Amino acid sequence: MHDARTFWLTGLSGAGKSTIASALQERLTQAGRHCTLLDGDVLRTGLCADLGFSPESRAENIRRVAHVCKLFNDAGVTAIVALISPYAHDRDKARQIIDASKFLEIHVATSIELCERRDPKGLYAKARAGEIKQFTGISAPYEAPVAPSCRLDTGQLALADCVELLCRL
């Protein structure tokens, strides 16, 4: 039996966080592991619907999600989180809340050029046109992890390879 952990996938919009998280959840479930997926877009329709995208709102979003992860981990459930989580200090707080020994910071380190080419929701185009304020990577910063548990570049790695690397952690 594996101990419950939190896989915290961070990266730019369009990097592949949700796709990797979903595939990882499927793989772990097939292996008999109890796990749940906490996706930033889904969380912002409920638990975090009252939050915007200012640095303060992002910090609160991450704080809430970290506490949910801790509850899941304490119940023996692995949490898989897909959140941009652009600020290092907010990810550090999440690590403290969850427990550093259970927190795996996964940097989905896809280039901004590839993220913009993918742009499934047209967000980069809107941000470049000034229609979206505080858009991570364009008009708001993204602080890449310095020493993540794993770094994945979806421009270089296939989805199956990304999941395999995460399963080895």
Score class of each variant (00 low, 15 high):
43 L>M: 15
140 A>H: 07
76 G>M: 05
65 V>Y: 01
156 Q>H: 08
11 G>Q: 07
111 S>F: 10
124 Y>G: 10
40 G>Y: 03
142 Y>N: 07
117 R>M: 13
86 P>S: 11
125 A>E: 13
165 L>Y: 03
12 L>E: 09
151 R>N: 03
3 D>C: 07
128 R>P: 03
42 V>R: 10
73 N>A: 13
137 G>W: 00
36 T>K: 05
103 F>K: 06
107 H>P: 05
39 D>K: 12
133 K>D: 10
158 A>Q: 13
149 S>Y: 02
46 G>A: 13
106 I>M: 06
147 A>H: 14
169 L>F: 12
34 H>Q: 13
116 E>S: 05
165 L>P: 01
69 C>F: 00
123 L>N: 11
106 I>V: 15
80 I>T: 06
64 R>H: 14
6 T>C: 15
161 D>F: 02
131 E>I: 12
99 D>V: 06
73 N>H: 09
66 A>L: 11
26 E>K: 15
133 K>N: 12
128 R>Y: 05
145 P>K: 04
150 C>V: 15
65 V>E: 02
59 A>V: 02
159 L>F: 09
117 R>V: 05
117 R>K: 15
168 R>W: 02
115 C>E: 01
116 E>V: 05
124 Y>H: 07
143 E>Q: 14
4 A>E: 01
99 D>W: 03
21 A>G: 15
62 I>H: 00
13 S>R: 01
169 L>G: 09
137 G>K: 00
121 K>A: 05
113 E>V: 11
47 L>C: 01
143 E>V: 08
109 A>E: 09
22 S>K: 14
96 Q>T: 15
149 S>K: 09
54 S>F: 01
10 T>I: 12
15 A>W: 00
49 A>Y: 02
137 G>V: 06
40 G>T: 09
74 D>P: 08
47 L>G: 00
27 R>T: 14
48 C>I: 01
59 A>Q: 14
64 R>E: 13
70 K>R: 15
49 A>M: 10
82 A>Y: 00
77 V>L: 08
46 G>K: 01
164 E>I: 02
66 A>N: 10
11 G>F: 04
116 E>G: 04
71 L>S: 12
10 T>K: 06
25 Q>I: 11
85 S>D: 07
75 A>P: 01
44 R>N: 08
79 A>W: 00
138 I>L: 05
82 A>C: 10
3 D>A: 12
135 F>Q: 04
48 C>K: 00
44 R>Q: 09
22 S>I: 10
166 L>H: 03
19 T>I: 08
8 W>N: 04
141 P>W: 04
166 L>Y: 02
80 I>N: 04
159 L>C: 07
42 V>G: 02
3 D>S: 13
4 A>K: 00
86 P>G: 06
66 A>W: 00
